[in-house]
Design a protein around this nucleic acid. Sequence first.
DNA 1: TTTCATATGTCAACCGGATGACATATAATT
DNA 2: AATTATATGTCATCCGGTTGACATATGAAA
Lengths: 322, 322
Amino acid sequence: MKPKISDVAKVAGVSPTTVSRVLNNRGYIGEKTRQKVDEAMKQLNYFPNDVARSLFIKKTFLIGVIFPTTTNPFYGQLIFHIENIAASLGYKILLCNSQGQEDKERSYLRMLQRNQVDGIIAGAHNRGVKEYDIPTLPVVGVDRYLSENIPVVSSDNYDGGRQATQLLINKGCRNIIHINGPIYLETPANLRRKAYEDVMKDNQLPPITYETDGDNQAVIKQLFDENPRVDSIFASDDLIASAVIREAKLRKRNIPSDFKVIGYDGTETTRLLLPELSTIQQPIREIAEKTIDILTKEINEEGDRSQMETILPVRLIESETT
Amino acid sequence: MKPKISDVAKVAGVSPTTVSRVLNNRGYIGEKTRQKVDEAMKQLNYFPNDVARSLFIKKTFLIGVIFPTTTNPFYGQLIFHIENIAASLGYKILLCNSQGQEDKERSYLRMLQRNQVDGIIAGAHNRGVKEYDIPTLPVVGVDRYLSENIPVVSSDNYDGGRQATQLLINKGCRNIIHINGPIYLETPANLRRKAYEDVMKDNQLPPITYETDGDNQAVIKQLFDENPRVDSIFASDDLIASAVIREAKLRKRNIPSDFKVIGYDGTETTRLLLPELSTIQQPIREIAEKTIDILTKEINEEGDRSQMETILPVRLIESETT
DNA sequence: TTTCATATGTCAACCGGATGACATATAATT
DNA sequence: AATTATATGTCATCCGGTTGACATATGAAA
């Protein structure tokens, strides 16, 4: 049986209350007593039961984190930083991979509430999941509009889209196509596409966009078939950009002289595996920092309801595909 | 204030015990009563408090997961599958990024015990962290020997190393160099190197190994400088392999005619970003499955202490760098 | 000598829910 | 009419730790 406070008290020869006082540094405690208690805890290999503690203090120091999948390098890196910063503040992470499925998202939300998390960070969101509006529970969205009452942190997607498109134009491209993931999500990431369209129009160029539903390869083939004169592609993330490069090489296009590609995200993993890819790098660490900052302030009821949207600057990385 | 069982009872016009009976499906419950209770719960937006429940039943359905970092695509994908399978069994994941630091690992272990996790899955391990030997708590290691009493799940690293080396030899390479990450970890992954050395010796070829401490690029440059005649490299993971390719291209080596590279891991992300890389693919999903299978059996005290090591087969992916 | 800060103990209530014991009531069976 | 399965209520206890109230003891300062 796991030892409890009363067991520690017996071994140390003090009262349970005294042990609790030592644990929580409350009231008067003598130096010798503290030592006796510490020794007893070590001897019994005692660990305070945070479940019991949480029940009483009505706080778990748990943060629920919902993203589509840790497999994607962007989310993997973002979650790493979130966990990291949270841990430094004494918070622990309950991990949820929603996989873009509404029902999973809903059931995770129930689960997190049953577990009495102190707050939720979510970057997954299907239209129609209204369950995020929980009056009693702080929630922060990352790159996703969850509800009018929920603060969002994202990078400057519009500026990123603008920079990417402008770069291609500056390099002399005219037949620039944008390709993005599922657009039905109400996400600030759609601004990348909007910026692309705006910049194209400003330059009297016709915007053409494709959308992948997951099968990147098929859509990209179609794109090339339907647009033989395409001279560059702005992909809404680096994975798609990579598939584009692949297909372009198969079609004997010369990168970057004959054909240019720029991606989006600029994760550590992409930089390592595909350093030649030009891309728009998101400030992942800063997004994590800001998100936790807002969330913990809401948890401690110091939330600033005036700033509902936080936008962080992106950085253009010019490499060898542009 | 969050509603509790007694609030639900009041609204439904029944006793708290009856509500608890409905929640746990225990004893006799009338259909009308069940409906009244369900409605009351919906009306109050009631969620059972799992903290209180856990305290009483002495089970949290929490699994602590400790790996170096979710940023690495191998761990990201592994954790995704672990979370996924765990969720389907009603378990939740407490995520820990140890970053290869002993002190972090230790403090995570304390944290997990305080939180009364039902079990721990760990793939991080620094020599000297003996705290994994927790008599009362099921632990399973992934690709890491944590202690003599802790079961390990890994892929067949020796066979992977053998296949990789043999492939290079079969392709006519003779100056094959192995490069791996920090080797001081007591990990089955060291078998990759052992296999490389064995195969080389079997073929009367001198094994040469390099070790990176994190700064891949520097070590790789040094490797090329010191071994101008190197004709192929077996890297212990795909990220290193990618850096090797990078450097080889800088040195105008022609891949694969003039110079060959094979990596290790074969994650989804690598396959997407660097599909041309030949590699040894680990069965990540199966590793996750087996790990959880062993862990849950230990949690339910159906553990099979005879099988302390589980080794799953790897798969050679021949692509364009060999 | 009195006063007070320090140190520790005892005791009870509480956090929210689970559960066993027991009482009671209704309706269906025998 | 007696028995039994079904349905619900009351009550107390427990899970492990926190906290406030109150008592008591000691040594130092006033």
